[in-house]
Design a protein around this nucleic acid. Structure first.
Lengths: 156, 156
DNA sequence: TTTGAAATCCAATCGCT
DNA sequence: AGCGATTGGATTTCAAA
């Protein structure tokens, strides 16, 4: 099973990226295909892990998650320990993203908490318990102008 | 119309965050409520913009978007021009996130392209045309260990 | 806000192409 | 891969509490 995608697949991705709750019937109407054929394609995209999951984007402020920060984390030891450190970081639910980055710093982490105090709590209680964290540099977000994970789908 | 959320609303958010394509009937079964009552609540969450949108997470590698980078962008002029600069950045489809950050740099931007060459294209053709960009500092992601936008939903 | 009933519509399967 | 027919179930609306 390969991952080659034709134009119809890309159209499906485009439509579902914009609205994950579109009905299969509406998808079929947009593509001018039979619903059963469309359903088949969607299932294959799921199986092939082209589609990873369907998520609901929730306004963070509505559930009192007002603080967003990025933290650069430097690891004190070599490359081998990094994988372990990364896994421990990934387990923290407030941490949405863990990226291994090029350059002097080892990781870039995106974290969301209620406020500055709870970010401090998290750093003291969760981060500092992870071995091999040499230093952290925190960047606080004042305002988010754009935040979406929509990819640019190729035309063909 | 206020934005106060009760336990049932939080349960709905929790379930829909995990799977945006859950059927209303399944939601109702989980909550042990009538489907019509659940539908009413979901619609209100949408109206109140607690739910922002339903999105499909697509594997970037499957559509040849292999490069992820974060760019720190310094603005050459004062605060007033920042809003304009931010809007121009936000219009670039490859840029997924634009954050106004505290500290010396003005913006942190998350960008996804096919490869290093197309990132360079983007910086030359799109970024450098935006006025008041004084400097950029690009951080390339080598590996993404975790990437989700799921929020920690409070228990009550 | 919730419910239950009713009408319409959809999801999912399968045999055929 | 796609289609069309089928059926069991889902969505959506609405009057009533």
């Amino acid at each position: 099973m390969d991952i080659s995608l034709d134009h119809t697949d890309l159209q499906i991705l485009e439509l579902m990226q914009t609205n994950a709750r579109i009905s299969n019937a509406d998808l079929a109407r947009e593509l001018e295909m039979a619903p059963s054929a469309v359903l088949e394609r969607v299932k294959k995209l799921e199986q092939k892990k082209v589609i990873r999951r369907y998520t609901t984007s929730i306004n963070p402020a509505a559930i009192q998650q007002k603080l967003l920060a990025f933290i650069f984390i430097r690891s004190s030891e070599g490359f081998s320990c990094c994988t372990n450190t990364a896994q421990l970081l990934a387990q923290i639910p407030e941490i949405q993203e863990v990226h291994h980055i090029a350059g002097e710093d080892c990781f870039l982490v995106k974290v969301r908490t209620a406020d500055a105090a709870s970010l401090m709590d998290l750093m003291r209680n969760s981060l500092q318990k992870i071995p091999n964290i040499a230093s952290t540099k925190t960047t606080i977000v004042l305002e988010t102008v754009k935040e979406q994970q929509e990819l640019v789908i190729p035309k063909k």
